[in-house]
């Protein structure tokens, strides 16, 4: 790690983090405020309809079973496509900065002309990304808590359980980031890298979603990182999903390491 590189990475990452953090805070506040009310108005009869159940189950990535209640609606805020898109967008922007972004904007020669190893660059950028990731998820938590102030106390989620959901979401964020580092390390064009990562993430999102409707896909649903992020279970039981978090961190870590190895070995300069 290098202090100068940390400063440089932070200077370039904070505007995106601030912007996406504020938007995410607003989205979470709105979801935490609206969803429990929506749930209260929704008749259980309506939820007995296969189609409606299917959509909710697909979003939550799990069988609803007898878990109809405030927790189920609170948990939607943490798997909502808009919330996921914002956190993933942040990972995508931060993790494609080096090397794809540097090569693409022509600053790679200046960066690599400095007396730092490529691993130092990679690790410094990763540290800033993780700190910014923690900041953006904290903003989401703050938004969620603010939104929950508008609903009756019995419909508010427990803070301790929210922390577990947030930790799980952070692991999911780390997996997406790991993938982004790997693709970025293999690429010279940031736009191309982001398109590839977006398409992969979209496929994995759809895989998790469609597996609830089409049973043959269930066999490979484990490939989607969303398979390991089930806030409805956490908010219902309060148990730490260690296994899910472990799978997410391990897969993210392996991809990050592979990205670092590629970055440290490949030819690199402004094209």
């Amino acid at each position: 790690m290098n202090r100068g590189l940390l400063i440089r990475a932070f200077r370039e990452s904070w505007p995106t983090t601030l912007l996406l953090g504020l938007v995410l805070m607003g989205v979470e506040a709105a979801l935490a405020f609206v969803l429990p009310k929506f749930g209260a108005q929704m008749s259980e009869q309506w939820l007995q309809m296969d189609f409606a159940r299917g959509i909710i189950q697909a979003m939550l990535g799990t069988e609803i079973g007898d878990r109809l209640g405030p927790q189920m609606f609170q948990s939607i805020a943490w798997v909502h496509p808009v919330a996921l898109a914002l956190t993933w967008a942040h990972a995508l922007v931060c993790c494609t900065r080096v090397p794809a972004g540097e090569v693409d904007r022509g600053t790679a020669d200046v960066l690599l002309g400095l007396p730092v190893s490529r691993w130092e660059v990679f690790i410094s950028e990763t540290v800033v990304w993780l700190l910014c990731g923690a900041a953006i998820l904290t903003a989401a938590l703050v938004g969620n808590l603010l939104g929950a102030q508008g609903v009756p106390p019995e419909h508010r989620p427990q803070l301790s359980r929210l922390f577990i959901v947030l930790a799980n979401l952070f692991c999911l964020y780390a997996t997406v980031g790991g993938l982004a580092w790997l693709v970025s390390a293999l690429s010279d064009r940031r736009g191309r890298a982001m398109t590839i990562i977006f398409l992969v993430l979209l496929s994995l999102f759809l895989l998790n979603y469609l597996a609830q409707f089409w049973h043959p896909l269930e066999r490979i649903a484990f490939l989607s990182p969303l398979h390991y992020h089930r806030p409805v279970t956490v908010l219902g039981t309060g148990a730490w999903p260690w296994k899910d978090m472990g799978v997410l961190l391990a897969s993210g870590g392996v991809m990050w390491l592979a990205g670092g190895a590629v970055f440290s070995r490949r030819d690199l300069c402004t094209v």
């Binding site: 600053t107 020669d109 002309g113």
Partner: peptide, 17 residues
């Protein structure tokens, strides 16, 4: 890394943030 401690480099197509 060790070499670049004692090098000052100006690229041909200089771009800075």
């Amino acid at each position: 890394k060790a070499i670049k401690r004692d090098i000052g480099y100006l690229p041909g197509d200089l771009r800075l943030p």
